[in-house]
Structures are given as structure tokens and as C-alpha cells.
Write a protein that binds this DNA or RNA. Sequence first.
DNA 1: TTCATATGTGAGATAAATATCATATGATAT
DNA 2: ATATCATATGATATTTATCTCACATATGAA
Lengths: 102, 102
Amino acid sequence: MKHAMETYQFFFGALANPNRLHIINTLRQGKKNVTEICTATGIEQTMVSHNLKVLEHHGMVFREKEGKYRYYTVNKKTIKPLLEFIDAHMEEYCCKIMGKKR
Amino acid sequence: MKHAMETYQFFFGALANPNRLHIINTLRQGKKNVTEICTATGIEQTMVSHNLKVLEHHGMVFREKEGKYRYYTVNKKTIKPLLEFIDAHMEEYCCKIMGKKR
DNA sequence: TTCATATGTGAGATAAATATCATATGATAT
DNA sequence: ATATCATATGATATTTATCTCACATATGAA
């Protein structure tokens, strides 16, 4: 059943990256344009653009044009419950693993 | 807030891999030992062992010893709702993306 | 139109994850 | 004790993802 599982690889692959998670996290505070994301996260602009493209393609963020700016918002309907679900999983099955490596 | 996000990278990193997803999928049918996982998935034994180790470390599967066999079970409490949640996300935000690349 | 600011894209360089191989350990049977 | 089957581990080879750089496009201002 490799086929059905490809969907999940697609999904998880989008989120298994520190820069993308950092961007998602900063967008949880509210919508931001690319430059604002850069200053908030300290990530270089072209890297931010590359990663925003991935996130948008995976439905994790949305984009809206405003003049010369592109404002991005996080997909709260997906991200919020997902992160909460993971918190619960980690609490129950991986308590005290983080803090060490991997 | 890179710190809080590391947890999520840890979590997603465990699942963003085709072999590990393949193993998880085959374990959904019921518990299997390593050799059974190999034949069911077609993945080489050492690769299966390496990946099972990762999955166990992340609380995605559990292991129980039975004589010379090690039986693995999937963490249904996490995996089942997670995959269903992703199905819903994909349906709503990524419909018709899969089938193409990435 | 020309310039400055904002953002996006492609390609090569770099880093990280995965696969493979050789071998180790552990258990049961002979 | 030895042989065999089951599983695990470590090191290197290979693949894949990420980062960086040079440049492209787009918008609004001067």
C-alpha cells in the first residue's frame, strides 16, 4: 500500500523542517508579509520565499496580495489542532526525550 | 520560538519517510515481528530494524518480546486519528495535488 | 522612464538523511 | 558447544533535501 501512504509523506515532508516550522510559528501571531517574516525569524529572504512556496503548496499557509506586498497567513484550521495533538502525543509517549538529541 | 518548534520537527521527522510509513501501514493490520514486516513490505531486514528503532523512539510503535521474536504494534491512538486528520486536510486544501510530483 | 523596494526562481554547493554492507548479539535447537 | 534463525548496530556509500548565490519579475515612487 505504498500509494495511499505517499499522501502522508507529502504532508509530513512539508513540516519536517525547522525553517518552515519557524515560519509557521511566527505566522500564528497574525499575518505577515515576506520581509516581516524575515525580520521576525532571522531567516534570509530567499530561503523564506522558497519555504513559503512549499508551505503554500501543501495548504499550510495562504497568500494574499496587497499592493507590492504578499501577506501570508497560517492555516489555523489545520495547524492549531495538529500541534495540540502532537503536544499530547509527546507528553504521553515521548516525555523527557526532547532535550537530548534526536 | 525555535525551541518549542523542535518538538514538532522531531515528530514530523519520524514520519516523513516512505519506508517508515510503509511499516506503519503494514502494522495497522496487526502486530508483526521483524521478519514478517520484511516480507510484507519488501524492505530489507536491516533497513526495517533501523527504521523500527526510529519509530519506537518516537512512540509510533511499541515492541514486545516473544521468545526469539520481537513483535511490533502500531500506536493506534496516535496514528489512526492523525492519518484521518491528514486525509481531511488533503481533501480540503490539496485536492488534486497528489498524482503530480512533490 | 528610471529607481528603489519587495518578492520569486533556478542552479550549483553544501548538509543531512537514507540505504547498504559487514558484522554483532541473542535465543533456541541439536 | 555448535549451528541456525531472528534481530540489531556501526560505518561508509549514496541519495535527497536544504542553503546560497546570482538574477528575474513586479509594484509603486520619483
